[in-house]
Lab assay of single mutants.
Amino acid sequence: TEKQERAIEYIRRLGYSEEEARRILKKANGNPDLAKEIARRIG
């Protein structure tokens, strides 16, 4: 989804690889607090 793409872009800007960014997002899917934090940061 567009939100996922924005989140991946944001995480990659922090210096993670695409693969790492996707792994972090997968974790965020099972972790509402982390997901909220990422969403808050990407606006």
Results as ranks from 00 to 15, higher is better:
residue 39 A to W: 02
residue 15 G to R: 01
residue 11 I to T: 00
residue 39 A to K: 02
residue 24 I to H: 01
residue 21 A to F: 01
residue 30 G to S: 05
residue 9 E to P: 01
residue 41 R to A: 13
residue 29 N to L: 10
residue 37 E to H: 12
residue 25 L to S: 01
residue 22 R to M: 08
residue 1 T to Q: 12
residue 24 I to L: 08
residue 17 S to N: 07
residue 25 L to F: 06
residue 22 R to T: 06
residue 42 I to Y: 13
residue 20 E to Y: 08
residue 28 A to Q: 02
residue 27 K to C: 15
residue 31 N to A: 05
residue 21 A to R: 00
residue 38 I to V: 06
residue 31 N to M: 06
residue 13 R to N: 14
residue 20 E to V: 09
residue 25 L to Q: 00
residue 35 A to H: 02
residue 39 A to Q: 02
residue 42 I to T: 12
residue 18 E to H: 07
residue 19 E to F: 13
residue 36 K to D: 03
residue 21 A to Q: 01
residue 15 G to W: 01
residue 43 G to L: 15
residue 32 P to W: 07
residue 12 R to Y: 04
residue 13 R to L: 14
residue 17 S to R: 04
residue 14 L to F: 06
residue 15 G to I: 00
residue 5 E to T: 09
residue 36 K to F: 10
residue 33 D to A: 10
residue 35 A to E: 02
residue 42 I to H: 14
residue 16 Y to K: 02
residue 3 K to F: 09
residue 43 G to I: 15
residue 40 R to Q: 12
residue 1 T to C: 08
residue 32 P to V: 12
residue 6 R to V: 08
residue 26 K to S: 10
residue 41 R to G: 11
residue 33 D to S: 10
residue 38 I to N: 04
residue 9 E to C: 14
residue 23 R to C: 08
residue 17 S to L: 04
residue 30 G to L: 05
residue 27 K to Y: 15
residue 7 A to S: 05
residue 1 T to H: 12
residue 31 N to Q: 07
residue 3 K to M: 15
residue 13 R to E: 13
residue 21 A to C: 04
residue 41 R to M: 12
residue 35 A to S: 03
residue 22 R to H: 09
residue 31 N to E: 07
residue 7 A to R: 02
residue 37 E to V: 12
residue 28 A to E: 01
residue 6 R to H: 11
residue 5 E to H: 09
residue 20 E to F: 11
residue 37 E to N: 08
residue 13 R to T: 14
residue 30 G to A: 04
residue 8 I to R: 03
residue 22 R to P: 00
residue 26 K to L: 13
residue 1 T to W: 13
residue 9 E to D: 14
residue 2 E to V: 11
residue 41 R to S: 12
residue 5 E to V: 09
residue 7 A to C: 09
residue 35 A to Y: 03
residue 17 S to E: 03
residue 12 R to C: 08
residue 26 K to F: 12
residue 9 E to Y: 06
residue 11 I to M: 12
residue 35 A to R: 02
residue 9 E to N: 08
residue 28 A to L: 04
residue 32 P to L: 09
residue 38 I to S: 03
residue 12 R to P: 00
residue 16 Y to T: 01
residue 19 E to D: 12
residue 40 R to T: 09
residue 2 E to G: 10
residue 12 R to V: 14
residue 39 A to H: 02
residue 4 Q to N: 09
residue 1 T to D: 14
residue 33 D to E: 15
residue 1 T to N: 12
residue 19 E to L: 12
residue 6 R to E: 15
residue 33 D to N: 09
residue 29 N to I: 05
residue 18 E to W: 08
residue 43 G to K: 15
residue 5 E to F: 09
residue 22 R to D: 04
residue 32 P to R: 03
residue 19 E to A: 13
residue 3 K to N: 13
residue 20 E to D: 09
residue 27 K to A: 15
residue 4 Q to G: 08
residue 34 L to M: 09
residue 26 K to T: 10
residue 43 G to S: 15
residue 6 R to I: 08
residue 13 R to Y: 09
residue 11 I to C: 04
residue 12 R to Q: 12
residue 9 E to G: 06
residue 4 Q to A: 13
residue 13 R to Q: 14
residue 37 E to Q: 13
residue 21 A to I: 07
residue 35 A to T: 02
residue 31 N to K: 06
residue 29 N to H: 13
residue 10 Y to L: 05
residue 36 K to C: 11
residue 35 A to N: 01
residue 15 G to P: 00
residue 36 K to A: 07
residue 43 G to E: 12
residue 28 A to Y: 04
residue 15 G to M: 01
residue 30 G to M: 10
residue 34 L to K: 08
residue 14 L to Y: 05
residue 2 E to S: 12
residue 3 K to T: 13
residue 39 A to L: 04
residue 42 I to S: 13
residue 8 I to E: 03
residue 26 K to Q: 12
residue 22 R to Q: 08
residue 3 K to H: 12
residue 8 I to V: 10
residue 23 R to F: 12
residue 16 Y to L: 06
residue 28 A to F: 04
residue 20 E to P: 00
residue 32 P to N: 04
residue 34 L to R: 09
residue 6 R to K: 14
residue 23 R to W: 15
residue 19 E to K: 10
residue 37 E to L: 11
residue 17 S to T: 14
residue 20 E to I: 08
residue 35 A to M: 04
residue 6 R to A: 15
residue 37 E to M: 10
residue 24 I to A: 02
residue 25 L to H: 01
residue 37 E to G: 06
residue 8 I to F: 07
residue 1 T to S: 13
residue 26 K to P: 00
residue 31 N to W: 05
residue 40 R to Y: 07
residue 12 R to F: 04
residue 14 L to Q: 04
residue 29 N to T: 04
residue 16 Y to D: 00
residue 34 L to F: 06
residue 14 L to T: 01
residue 1 T to K: 13
residue 40 R to G: 07
residue 19 E to T: 10
residue 3 K to I: 13
residue 1 T to V: 12
residue 9 E to Q: 10
residue 32 P to D: 05
